[in-house]
Nucleic acid binder design. Structure first.
Length: 672
DNA sequence: AGACGTGTAAACAACC
DNA sequence: CGGTTGTTTACACGTC
């Protein structure tokens, strides 16, 4: 009986494997082979934005960002048709369809760069172009600055000779200045817009003033708040400094997203005190600088950071003085605020888009597993199994055979920044991609770094049994473990191994016996297993899942997620969104994501292009899956490969009885 | 195509 | 007798 069932399952399993693995294969072969691992990003300077200089540099950043995007477009243009064809593939697992077609994000740029799609010459050209554009932007800024100074001078003169009689004259002058200022603004705006047009920025026709699209998820990351804080600091400052100029209602515009900024930008003398900020900036943390008497968003390094100012202020007091005198509420300040707002809006826009993209990616990844062959499944999860099974026998509509774990409802879209919960993200792809332990660093560091993740998410660790066994043994105080202890380590460390115990335990035993590197040592109370490092190192000098670059990365970088983090940071920086880096990077989840993405980058790329259409976010019917999962779950034993996952959520209770799990599980039934 | 590494299934033996 | 431990074989798959 068992045998029969076994064979049956086996066949099923094979089918499954074919399904998922086929894709995998493609992925692995394709992705990296053609691209170089990822050299340094050429656009280095772009990413260096310092938080402290955000205000000062935002305009530049935006310009750079636009440039990057623009360049990217050019790049695609440069490349032969072939290149274009390839692009989708380059976009990692994310289906092209999901991304806003007209926008090529810095991330994409980054990807392209990473894959070294560009030749050094091309990069050179791009750099030069960028520099030229930056120069142009700088010139523009300088011009702007000069104009401001001139204006200021004139204003001062006015004030100096402020005599009632001249009132009228002054007004006239002011008007002239204002016009001048307006022209300046327009110039700058035009510049920005032209960049946008060339580059991309999807600005809707009717909203020339930079439409701030509501964030897709409706939430603003703290970083954004921070940004807002900076943007609105001027406003706040005036309040705090006792300056009565109630200024502009900067916030409204941005916040109201859809409203054309022009109208809302109008000065609102009465608004200042009432939480306009509240709309989008929930918390008025913007006042935070008050807590630090001598720290001010507009002041740093002895210089006034008011856009285009850079006046040297010896101390904070003089800065305040300067702020009140030079940047009081007037047309100039208003105009500058407007510009700044636009900058912020741009950033927000970009943020929104990137968020969308992220969501799409997430969604896509979830969904992906359902796709039989193409899915590039990054993580080694097991979902594939499900698929196959469902595909073959499952319900007609088989919703979603999504491998997704129950816990990871695929409703990513609505989730916040932290969407990438451990459970959700990792349950994604199954494939059998394991890192050889040859590169010890990865396994140990990976496990260490993602310990919590593995403990909670039913993700198959990307390591071979041998590697894991070795790790378990090496982690023990005496470098030796009994079989049962090894089992315990597996179940303790990986949620994945809390299921299908029969399968993996058998595999463990099999590995222990099979590999010479595992030495059984008789002990007083039985036998323990130890590792023969020499033997272990000896065995298969293979590479990691076919991707040389991956190996390289692993070797050079400490933990394999490090590079990705770096890449992410670089990407973010290039996005001119330096703020993001701060908060997010510390998040372990991100590291996981990074790992996942990295894998995708390394192995899965090419593949995706075949089903780009499918992967669109919308296509995630899967979400409905969970409810059903139980049904499907009972999977085939084969699932072993990708088995587990489905049912329990990662976060589920760790208090499991692994043995019992195995026995009680429907799994057994499947077997039959 | 074949070798190799790996995972899975399973049969079997020895032991507790 | 049943479970665990350990060995071995067979097969499938992916990679090179």
């Amino acid at each position: 009986m068992m045998q029969e069932s076994g064979t049956e399952t086996k066949s099923n399993g094979s089918a499954i494997q074919n399904g998922s693995s086929g894709g995998n294969h493609l992925l692995e072969c394709g992705g990296l082979r053609e691209g170089r691992p990822n050299g340094e990003t050429p656009a280095v300077d772009v990413g260096a934005a310092d938080l402290a200089h955000v205000q000062q540099q935002q305009a530049l950043q935006v310009a750079r960002q636009l440039l990057l995007q623009q360049q990217q477009q050019q790049v695609s243009g440069l490349k032969s048709p072939k290149r274009n064809d390839k692009q989708p593939a380059l976009q990692v697992p994310v289906s092209v369809a999901m991304m806003t077609p007209q926008v090529i994000t810095p991330q994409q740029m980054q990807q392209i760069l990473q894959q070294q799609v560009l030749s050094p010459q091309q990069l050179q050209v791009l750099l030069q172009q960028q520099q030229a554009l930056m120069l142009q932007q700088q010139q523009l800024q300088e011009f702007y600055k000069k104009q401001q100074e001139q204006l200021q001078l004139q204003l001062l003169q006015q004030h100096a000779g402020k005599q009632p009689k001249e009132q009228q004259q002054v007004s006239t002058q002011q008007l002239a200045f204002q016009q001048q200022l307006l022209q300046m603004q327009q110039l700058q705006q035009q510049h920005l817009l032209s960049l946008q047009r060339q580059g991309l920025l999807t600005i809707q026709p009717g909203q020339p003033a930079l439409p701030l699209q509501p964030l897709a998820q409706g939430m603003i990351p703290t970083e954004l708040q921070q940004l807002w804080k900076e943007v609105t600091s001027a406003h706040t400052t005036e309040e705090t400094t006792g300056n009565n100029h109630s200024s502009l209602d900067l916030t409204t515009t941005c916040v109201s997203s859809s409203a054309p900024s022009k109208t809302s930008l109008i000065m609102n003398p009465h608004a200042s005190t009432n939480g306009q900020l509240s709309v989008h900036t929930p918390k008025r943390e913007s006042l935070s600088h008050e807590e630090h008497p001598h720290s001010h968003p507009l002041y740093g390094h002895g210089v006034c950071k008011w856009p285009g100012c850079e006046a040297v202020c010896e101390d904070f007091q003089s800065f305040l003085k300067h702020l009140n005198s030079e940047h009081a509420l007037d047309d100039r300040s208003t105009a500058q605020c407007r510009v700044q707002m636009q900058v912020v809006q741009q950033l927000e826009l970009q943020l929104a888009k990137d968020k969308e993209r992220l969501q799409a990616m997430m969604t896509h990844l979830h969904v992906k597993s359902t796709e039989p062959k193409t899915a590039p499944q990054p993580l080694n999860l097991v979902s594939s199994v499900t698929l196959s099974k469902s595909a073959s026998e499952a319900s007609p509509q088989s919703l979603p055979h999504t491998p997704t774990t129950p816990t990871a409802p695929i409703t990513p879209v609505t989730q916040g920044p932290s969407v990438i919960t451990t459970t959700s993200m990792h349950t994604v792809g199954p494939i059998r991609r394991r890192y050889s332990d040859k590169y010890n660093v990865p396994i140990s560091s990976d496990i260490a770094q993602n310990q919590e993740f593995y403990k909670n998410a039913e993700v198959r660790p990307p390591f071979t049994y041998a590697s894991l066994i070795r790790q378990a043994i090496l982690e023990s105080p005496e470098k030796q473990l009994t079989l049962n202890e090894i089992y315990n380590w597996f179940t303790r460390m990986f949620a994945y191994f809390r299921r299908n115990a029969a399968t993996w335990k058998n595999a463990v035993r099999h590995n222990l016996s099979l590999h010479k590197c595992f030495v059984r040592v008789e002990n007083v109370k039985g036998a323990v297993w130890t590792v023969d490092e020499v033997e272990f190192q000896k065995r298969r000098p293979q590479k990691i899942s076919g991707n040389p670059s991956l190996i390289k990365n692993m070797q050079t970088s400490h933990a394999y997620c490090t590079p990705l983090n770096a890449a992410l940071q670089a990407s973010m920086a290039e996005n001119s969104i330096p703020l993001y880096t701060t908060a997010s990077m510390g998040n372990p989840t991100l590291g996981n994501l990074a790992s996942a993405i990295r894998e995708e980058l390394n192995g899965a790329m090419e593949h995706t292009n075949s089903n780009e259409s499918d992967s669109s976010p919308g296509r995630s019917p899967m979400q409905a899956v969970h409810p059903v999962h139980v049904k499907e779950e009972p999977l085939d034993p084969e699932e072993a490969e990708g088995p587990l996952s489905l049912v329990t959520t990662a976060n589920h209770s760790p208090d499991f009885d692994h043995d019992r799990d195995y026995e009680d599980e429907p799994v057994n039934e499947d077997m039959e």
